[in-house]
Design a protein around this nucleic acid. Structure first.
Lengths: 222, 222
DNA sequence: GATTGTGAAGAGCTTCACAGCT
DNA sequence: AGCTGTGAAGCTCTTCACAATC
């Protein structure tokens, strides 16, 4: 049963939040037989209850009036809707600070993401192991990625190398790219790109903070 | 002259992109007397030209029909509209991999952001210098932040400490928080929060990638 | 001829509010 | 009583299209 409606971009963002709220709840609820209402879930992630119900309707989860949604069922439903029902294979390019932070991320691999290869330009790193992953040379990238069958590539290199690395990842068959370089990537349609941009985040923070000078503060959830 | 209209959240996101496109352009245009059209700028950041014009109208930038916008004037206008006309003082809490990545970020400080204090829980780090910044103990946090007069705080600690650290930052007078922990923060209204969440980004990537199975690919810019 | 500025139309997203179920 | 599911209303953002300008 495919989702009734497509999941919008804002909804996809919220789904990640729901997932984590559900997981934290499941951790405290061993049998996993508990329920959660749209209001509770909304409170946990800073979203209105009606919004939660609309989102969940899209993933095809059935709530029980008067009770709420079954935790386990809901968790599975959201994961399936987000394309996380089976694991994704990812490669990491760039083992600088950001790359290391990702390697150290316990969550990586824990649920649905498997890091199958790691590359770096630095000859001093190539051949060594970082967080259990043998670092390969950039020369080995295209062949290595192709052999690994990875669908996702993570670009954690300096900005001037980002486009080139991304192009080679796509050449090697990757279908989605996570870009940590503060530079927009141009990739063919059919390849998904998601950017994580510290500078943008900082600037957004400056903007939002300067908005909140004394005076009319409308706020909603978080 | 305050902006005619308020800048929407999506618009604020794009402003950061405009800024970087303009800066990269200014770097290749030493006198800074060049012009750029809404179409060119839109192409650089993956946005429709009409959208660019609407955004720029909000910052109060005046374009010249048939020619475009003056680079330097536009750059200044966007920075002002984003609240970047004068520098922000920020503190960093947590000198793990993410914290280090931020410290290494050349852009940090280069334009508009000054890192005025750095804290970490690890006794082995306290007192040492990392990337030119003396690491202070967590015990010194509230007093240290208050004395520094920082308006922004960056939370780069493990998730279980994030809320506590954020609370103390707010207690110390911080008015905006950049959160790298994969956990939503609850802070009083009047304090801005921007989250950078790797897990969310990865899951969004999985979702967008799974959408792009063969078939109808609508795409626009990037 | 090229490009801006913008009203109006269009698309998308969120909130409201309530009938219906347990 | 509590909660879901959802049509309808309301709001926000984006795209269109074109007169005005250089």
């Amino acid at each position: 049963m495919p989702p009734r409606t497509t999941i919008s971009k804002p909804a996809a963002r919220r789904m990640s939040l729901y997932l984590r709220a559900l997981e934290s709840r499941l951790a405290h609820d061993d049998p996993g037989e508990g329920h959660i209402s749209s209001r509770e879930l909304g409170l946990a992630v800073g979203v209105a209850d009606a919004q939660v119900r609309k989102d969940l309707a899209v993933v095809g989860a059935a709530g029980q009036p008067g009770v709420g949604y079954r935790l386990k069922e809901l968790h599975d439903g959201v994961r399936r809707a987000m394309g996380l029902q089976r694991p994704w294979r990812a490669v990491l390019v760039g083992v600088g600070n950001i790359g290391r932070a990702l390697l150290a991320y316990p969550r990586f691999g824990e649920e649905g993401f498997e890091l199958v290869a790691v590359f770096d330009r630095d000859a001093g790193l190539v051949g060594r192991k970082v967080a259990g992953h043998a670092v390969q040379s950039m020369a080995a990238l295209v062949e290595g990625v192709r052999r690994s069958g990875a669908q996702l590539g993570i670009v954690a290199v300096p900005p001037d190398q980002a486009q080139d690395v991304a192009d080679r990842l796509v050449e090697a068959g990757v279908r989605g790219v996570l870009n940590f370089a503060p530079r927009p990537l141009r990739l063919p349609p059919g390849v998904a790109v998601v950017a994580v941009d510290f500078t943008e985040a900082l600037e957004r923070l400056a903007f939002e903070t300067s908005l909140r000078r004394q005076g009319s503060q409308r706020q909603k959830g978080a």
